[in-house]
Design a protein around this nucleic acid. Structure first.
Lengths: 235, 235
DNA sequence: TCAAAAGTGTTTAGTTTACACCCATGC
DNA sequence: GCATGGGTGTAAACTAAACACTTTTGA
């Protein structure tokens, strides 16, 4: 039997939070056919001699300038018709960055790279909308059971910023006092200093204590943010 | 730039429970080089014109005779050295079956297919041990948050069988009364009839009510089996 | 009548939820 | 002094955990 080879690409769904704590996704405008001039996820073909994660990081760097970020494999999409050029199997990754600390610089491959607010696009190339849907679902459920939200924040952050992040992504309001006491009781945050120059009582800044978290998980600790059951449809 | 194509395979980690409620994995003895005569996961190269899940089901059928099973994508492995023949990227799937209802019939590709108890092998071909490790982790966490355990049982089962399954896979004993009341309170099991011809008080048989579960999840219900925190190391 | 597994109720501890007021700062 | 967001305690409701004895059947 003849063993056939396949076109293999990677695509990246990179999330960031803007100043209004709205979720944005890093998109690029395609410079080439097919789907020329349409918005698409950063990504491209896997080269010989690199593994998938290397390919993903390389493509992201080339097309947007974003590097050194939290990145995890999402899912591998193989629908036959997903690319008009023929069967292209794509391994999707999702990434999380602190938007301010990852400046964009669109390069050769893509004409333009931008952080675009969720839903603020009309149509995307290929099946990229589908990929984003899967990534959003994954982000949603991961956020509740693993401390990955911190990846979207600067190293030092206020509890309010953290709560806003959760509310924005989970799509529902959380009670302030409950959220604060729950997350503080976990013992994975370190209070570092106070805010300065804000026109209200300055908040404490915290940083996520990765080491402590690792130790706690070894002892059976499980990170979890519970969301009230009834109000799944609130803002 | 030259776009290169890649070798793409699928591999399957199919779980079943034996009569002692021990977890087994479906392995095949390789008929061809490399790793000839060693145990390996069922799997093989993806063909033109089929998607990944089709390839997975086809290979499983060809090599073991097992078909019509619960199957989900696990992870895509791309380590450069994972195949001595050169870079082969493999998309792993994991499956769950009721062992008795899925008879084996090894065919052309694999010399032999067998259900082998966890850890009862010494060495596996390629990086298949690694793939199994990832599948086990996934099974563990999925079992707690999604009602996939039923896939390992016959359509009608006793609560004790269900509990044994959980204890076996989670690696820890659960309190019988708490387990029963919790799972019954969910309202996703239908009592159907009683056991017969057993040398003890006959138990009720139940079946999993998929429709009801679907409806409940739409209303915000979340399946969860909690495990006592302290005793993570019990049998 | 014995062995073997099925079945069941209640109390306690812990967690989650809901709720309202005062505090510190810049302008 | 006012607007803005920061910070806190407690009671009620719910859920999880721990626990031992009786029932039903076949052999």
């Amino acid at each position: 039997m003849q063993i056939t080879k396949h076109f293999l690409s990677v695509d990246l769904v990179v999330f960031g939070l803007d100043k209004q704590d709205d979720l944005r996704i890093l998109l690029v405008k395609r410079a080439l056919q097919p789907y020329k001039d349409e918005w698409a996820l950063p990504g491209g073909f896997v080269r010989d001699g690199e593994n998938l994660e290397q390919a993903a990081r390389r493509e992201l760097m080339e097309e947007t300038g974003v590097r050194d970020l939290f990145l995890e494999q999402l899912y591998t999409f193989s629908t036959l018709e997903r690319d008009p050029r023929g069967q292209v199997i794509t391994v999707a990754y999702y990434g999380l960055v602190n938007l301010k600390q990852h400046p964009l610089q669109a390069a050769t491959d893509a004409a333009d790279a931008q952080w675009i607010t969720l839903g603020a696009w009309s149509q995307l190339a290929f099946d990229h909308q589908k990929i984003i849907d899967v990534a959003l679902q994954r982000l949603n459920s991961k956020l509740r059971y693993q401390p990955i939200g911190f990846e979207l924040l600067p190293p030092k952050f206020t509890l309010t910023a953290l709560q806003n992040l959760y509310e924005s992504i989970l799509g529902q309001n959380l009670n302030r006092r409950n959220f604060r006491s729950k997350i503080l009781k976990m013992g994975i945050l370190i209070q570092v200093e106070r805010q300065k120059d804000v026109a209200h009582r300055p908040a404490f800044l915290y940083r996520f204590d990765r080491e402590r978290y690792k130790k706690l998980t070894e002892k059976g600790f499980e990170f979890a943010i519970s969301v009230p059951k009834d109000k799944k449809n609130e803002a």
